[in-house]
Computed example of a mutant assay.
Amino acid sequence: MIRLEHLTKVFGAPGSGVTAVNDVNFEVPAGEICVLLGPSGCGKTTTMKMINRLIEPTGGKVYIDGRDTDMIDPIQLRRSIGYVIQQIGLFPNKTVAENICVVPDLLGWDRKKSRARAAELLEMVAMEPASFMERYPKELSGGQQQRVGVIRALAADPPVMLMDEPFGALDPINREVIQDEFLRMQETLRKTIIFVSHDLDEAVKMADKIAIFRAGRLEQFSTPDRLLANPATPFIETFLGSDRTLKRLRLLRVAEAMLAEVDVVRREDPVEKAGELMRAKGYPAVLMLEPDGRPGGVVSGDVISGGQASARSGTCGDHAEPIRAAVPVEADLHSTVALMFTHDMPIMPCVDEDGQFQGAVTYRSIIKSLSIPETPA
């Protein structure tokens, strides 16, 4: 757990200096990622560097797991905290294994133990130890170097990590891959992380909590969902952008918008049954299930309202269009809406990992799931 109490930094002479961080208070529970976000010069990096005392506070306190960091030797403190920067900072004259083991070696770890740890971490980021342990940084791609920089911070198994725009220099594809790998590791490792970013989409994806700064002050501290739903000030509303509702779709799962008790038809049912369901339930279309419980087709409103007499007779199987896509219940709503637009599907079947039908989402059910939380965090 990291707790900041009245943390303040003034650069320059007392009374005439520049206040970079002004009376910041927040707490990050153990095992969570807190992203510090805000415009350039707002104090987010200075705040992060005061946690490991790379910058000494002018006032206030930082506590890590209840310990006042002022009472800890700065060198000892920094060796107990993982640190990742955008520029990576690998030693060019050291191998990948030696770079990863810098802190374990300083802490006096047995060489066999530290190299085993390096191999374990390389495997976690999909880099085969036998192929990469003895390479030098210049022999790695930019994305591979960034992976090594991240796992180097994990080598001594620190409970706390500080990350200063760690993925900012990567191209979008590599950044997305490494973000996903890091989140997968975090599910297991549960480190307490302060993460500086200038990218709102990255913050929404990575954070358990977001702290938005402006001119050295903490403007709002909240979960990503509540932040996007309830910006506390006009500045934050402007900073988040007019599309903040769309950004929330990444945070919500299909299960949160799914109609679990949706009425369906079978292949042998008369097509008029689909029409009755649309009229009675307000469905934009009706899903047809196969005997094995999988979605097999969709009867659209166009069929039911079609002018031809044949559209109103026959079975659902005669008129159903093939299912173009289905979404897992654990998928996010952002990707779901993209599929619905791509395939022109106003109703989307939701399935479990075995492809069995679980429910459906519609545009209306998604809008309902975006209702603003009652109280801000």
Rank of each mutant, 00 (worst) to 15 (best):
E5T: 15
H6K: 15
L7E: 00
F11R: 10
N22M: 14
P29G: 08
I33S: 08
V35Y: 02
L36E: 00
T47S: 06
M50L: 12
P57G: 02
V62Q: 03
V62K: 01
D73C: 03
I81K: 06
C101G: 06
P104C: 05
L106D: 05
K112R: 14
R115N: 07
A126V: 11
P129H: 05
S131G: 10
E134K: 11
R147I: 04
R147E: 03
V148Q: 04
M163H: 05
E176R: 14
V177L: 14
E181R: 05
M185A: 07
Q186Y: 04
L189S: 06
I193G: 07
H198Q: 12
D201H: 12
E202A: 02
M206R: 04
K209L: 12
Q220A: 04
T223C: 02
D225L: 14
L227W: 01
A229H: 02
P231H: 01
F235L: 01
T238N: 11
T238E: 13
L240I: 02
G241W: 06
T245W: 08
L251S: 03
L252K: 08
L259S: 06
L259A: 12
A260H: 10
P270D: 08
L277Q: 01
M278T: 09
K281G: 13
G282F: 07
G306Y: 10
S310C: 09
R312S: 15
G317D: 08
H319G: 01
P328L: 12
A331Y: 10
V337I: 14
L339Q: 12
P349S: 03
V351R: 02
D352K: 08
E353N: 11
D354F: 15
G355N: 10
Q356N: 15
F357Y: 15
S371D: 13
P373R: 11
